[in-house]
């Protein structure tokens, strides 16, 4: 399970870099990506006609071709290294040393670390994903230690280039929490709930970082209050939604009427 999750992390990372780069290439070379350093390089973006989807398709193609060629996928191997590295973090910290130890443990050259898009940050990301899993298991027990750990990780991630990933993980974490709470909603409420919980989580996390009370007592009460607010907010948003629907119906019918009149006239 964890492997799949970590892979879920690594694959989009790689895809992110590649999809951006594929713009610069004619379709025939879709297997490769170019990197370009912002300092002294110019990309030959000569095919801006490619749509977003096409770009992604090229990206996917590249992975399929890669798989066909060889038994092992590098995403798999990278995920394994990261997992092994996490076991060394306690001893060596969020460091390259932990990653080197991880690589050695799974029997690949530590040189592979150079192929990770963001080196140590990748390790931290892997760990947040990992503890999302822990979190899913630990609810409805005490979820807090896992959250605390996540908070620290996310702090570590709060460096500018890593922010998008941090948000993505937040979304995944929030998803896990709702799932663990037994929520299977897939309607509009899905978005609503996730947005609400995401905000709640962030606020609580920030509160907790400065909370010195024993057992994070203040944080818990903060959280309780926020939950209350959130449910009220939920109600409010629900009402607003109904209103919007009503308005939408109104506008729709008047527009319909207008069109009818126009066609008649």
């Amino acid at each position: 399970m964890n492997r799949i999750v970590v892979k879920r992390l690594v694959v989009p990372l790689c895809r992110n870099t590649s999809s951006r780069r594929f713009l610069a290439l004619p379709p025939i070379s879709s297997r490769f990506s170019t990197d370009s350093s912002p300092h002294f390089s110019h990309q030959n973006e000569e095919t801006p006609t490619q749509t977003e989807e096409e770009v992604h398709r090229h990206g996917d193609q590249s992975f399929r071709e890669g798989e066909r060629g060889r038994g092992v996928e590098y995403e798999d191997e990278q995920a394994q290294v990261l997992q092994a590295a996490l076991r060394h973090v306690v001893r060596l910290g969020w460091s390259e040393a932990a990653m080197i130890a991880g690589a050695k443990e799974v029997g690949v050259s530590p040189a592979i670390i150079g192929s990770f898009p963001r080196k140590e940050a990748t390790l931290v990301e892997a760990s947040s994903i990992w503890s999302n899993d822990d979190l899913a298991r630990s609810i409805p027990g005490s979820a807090f230690p896992a959250i605390a750990k996540n908070a620290m990780d996310l702090l570590g991630l709060a460096l500018p280039p890593n922010i998008p990933t941090s948000f993505k993980q937040r979304a995944m974490l929030v998803d896990e929490i709702w799932h663990a709470a037994g929520d299977q909603a897939s309607d509009v409420d899905w978005y609503l709930k996730r947005t609400a919980l995401g905000g709640l989580y962030s606020a609580t996390e920030i509160y907790m970082l400065t909370d010195k009370s024993p057992g994070f007592r203040d944080t818990w009460s903060f959280l309780n209050n926020r939950v209350k607010d959130a449910f009220d907010l939920g109600k409010t948003v629900q009402e607003a939604k109904y209103l919007a629907e009503a308005v939408g119906v109104g506008i729709g019918s008047s527009l319909q009427g207008f069109m009818k009149r126009a066609s008649r006239g």
Binding site: T34, S36, S41, G66, G69
Partner: peptide, 10 residues
């Protein structure tokens, strides 16, 4: 695997 290239100075 993971063949990539990076152009510098165009």
């Amino acid at each position: 695997q993971k063949v990539q290239y990076e152009n510098m100075v165009g």
